[in-house]
Computed example of a mutant assay.
Amino acid sequence: MSNIVRFFMSTVFIFVVLISCETDPCEGVSCDNGVCDAISGECICSRGYQTDLNGICTVTWTTKMIGSYTVSDSCTGPNAGTTTYNSTIAAVDEANLTLSNLGNTGRTVPATHTNFTNFEIDWKSNDTIFSGTGTWVVDTLIRIEYMINDTTNQRIDTCLATYTRL
């Protein structure tokens, strides 16, 4: 009987030692602008940040889009047709952008980060509402589907803009 008790106690001891030897995948991991996932040990970035080549949340989401662009804008509605114009995209902070001259209107419209490659436009001035979504396709190309609602003249245009970096 004492052999059974010794075997049982040895097994329990080994089991406890093995469990206590598990390592924390986040031990020593600093994610900077994010938190470490306790299961994978990978950084989960705060809104507006992405991981760098080392997997740390140091890259500001907006930096990849900043620049000057040529825009090809195709619209349906009262102002139907295709227009080409220039625009700049600037960073306000890590999660917010501004789009100059959206729709060739001369207005600067804000946009907000929604996920890794997308942003949302939802802005109203005195007489115009801009709404839509944008997608960062590659380093040199952004597509924006948006609507311009001219509330004074009761006109709504739906557009697809293709931004090509200069």
Rank of each mutant, 00 (worst) to 15 (best):
G34W: 09
K64H: 03
N149Y: 12
F119P: 06
T108E: 08
T70D: 13
P78K: 07
I19R: 11
N115Q: 08
G106S: 05
C21I: 15
A38F: 10
E120I: 07
T51L: 02
D150A: 08
I144C: 11
Y49L: 09
T151C: 03
G67S: 04
L102G: 09
T51F: 00
P78I: 02
T58W: 06
M65E: 01
E94Q: 14
S125Q: 08
T152H: 08
E145F: 10
T23C: 10
C159K: 08
F116G: 11
T98N: 05
T152Y: 05
N86D: 14
G81S: 10
V5H: 01
F8W: 03
S68Y: 02
V12C: 11
L141F: 03
G41H: 02
R6K: 14
G67W: 06
G41W: 01
V138T: 13
W136H: 15
P25K: 06
F7Y: 02
G28M: 11
R143Q: 12
W61M: 11
I129H: 05
T88H: 03
G103I: 14
T128R: 10
N96L: 00
M147I: 15
C26I: 09
V17C: 14
D150Y: 11
V35S: 14
I14L: 15
S68K: 10
D37L: 15
D24H: 09
W61R: 12
D52T: 13
T82L: 07
D93Y: 01
E94G: 03
R47T: 06
T60Y: 00
R155I: 02
S46P: 02
T140G: 05
V109H: 02
R47W: 05
G134T: 13
T112Q: 15
L99Q: 05
T76I: 13
V35G: 02
W61F: 06
V59Q: 08
T51R: 04
P110K: 01
V137Y: 10
L53S: 11
F15N: 06
C31K: 10
T114A: 05
D93H: 07
N115R: 04
C43P: 06
S74D: 08
T60K: 11
S74Y: 02
V137Q: 11
N153Q: 11
N115F: 02
P78R: 09
D139M: 10
T162Y: 03
T164I: 02
T114H: 04
G28L: 05
R155K: 07
T51G: 12
F7W: 01
S10Q: 12
L18G: 13
A38L: 14
C45P: 06
G41I: 11
L141Q: 14
A38M: 15
Y146K: 02
S10N: 14
T158L: 11
F116C: 05
N104Q: 06
T23P: 00
L141I: 12
D139N: 13
G81K: 10
C75Q: 04
G34V: 09
G41R: 01
Q50L: 13
L102N: 01
N153K: 12
I66M: 13
I129C: 00
E22T: 12
M65S: 04
L160N: 13
S10E: 12
I19C: 01
T133N: 14
F7E: 00
F119R: 04
T117N: 14
D93V: 02
N149L: 07
T114R: 07
I44Y: 04
V109K: 01
G41D: 08
V138P: 00
A38Q: 15
N79E: 04
S131L: 12
N86P: 02
L53C: 09
V29N: 00
C75Y: 01
Y69N: 07
